[in-house]
């Protein structure tokens, strides 16, 4: 009995470590006074989440999470934050009204999320042999291009639209501010 207990503990140990890091760093993200530290905490949170994905045998998602979020988007965040001269003196003082309304809005988001997840929980537990290696690239690719082909293509159109929009904005600014070129 004791032996089985330790094996369970051993199997759960990485999960516990990753969860601990994720929660701690997520707290650090919102409590850090310095926005740069905040972003760095967020990056570490992503790392912990990637660790979770690996534990779920979803290596592809884990690495893509690292490349896209931690490797690209967070670099841009950090890039912008480093250029801003953020220190305590320049931090705007927010009134209580704003703080209270912010808290209410965040609470509403939480309630919505909780409601959505409660409804969704019925679909989530779907074990079985075919779901075993779903995180691996081959199976993931097959499923993406068969069962989920419509959402996948729609999201790619969304990306295309975003790209066109970015190019359009870049072009227009260049025409107006000719001295910049």
């Amino acid at each position: 009995m004791e032996d089985a207990g330790t094996t369970v503990m051993m199997n759960q140990l990485p999960f516990i470590i990753f969860s601990f890091i994720a929660i701690l760093m997520a707290l650090g993200t919102i409590t850090a006074r310095n926005p740069v530290y905040s972003v760095l905490c967020l990056i570490l949170t992503f790392f912990a989440l990637s660790g979770h994905y690996v534990l779920l045998n979803a290596q592809f998602i884990a690495v893509v999470n690292l490349i896209v979020y931690a490797g690209a988007i967070m670099v841009l965040f950090l890039f912008v934050l480093m250029l801003l001269n953020l220190n305590k003196e320049t931090e705007p003082v927010k009134s209580y009204l704003w703080q209270i309304s912010g808290a209410i809005a965040a609470g509403l988001v939480l309630v919505t999320l909780a409601g959505a997840l409660k409804g969704a929980s019925a679909y989530m537990v779907k074990g079985g042999p075919e779901a075993e290696g779903i995180g691996l690239v081959k199976n993931l690719g097959k499923i993406l291009f068969s069962d989920f082909v419509l959402p996948f293509e729609i999201s790619s159109i969304l990306f295309l639209a975003a790209m066109v929009g970015a190019v359009f904005i870049g072009k227009r600014e260049k025409q107006e501010g000719g001295a910049n070129s």
Binding site: V63, L66, I67, A70, V75
Partner: peptide
């Protein structure tokens, strides 16, 4: 021997900038 070896390398190379 991870089946996404090349993505792993890209991922860590992109981490290097930090």
């Amino acid at each position: 021997d991870i089946d996404i070896g090349i993505l792993y390398i890209i991922g860590f190379v992109s981490m290097g900038v930090y």
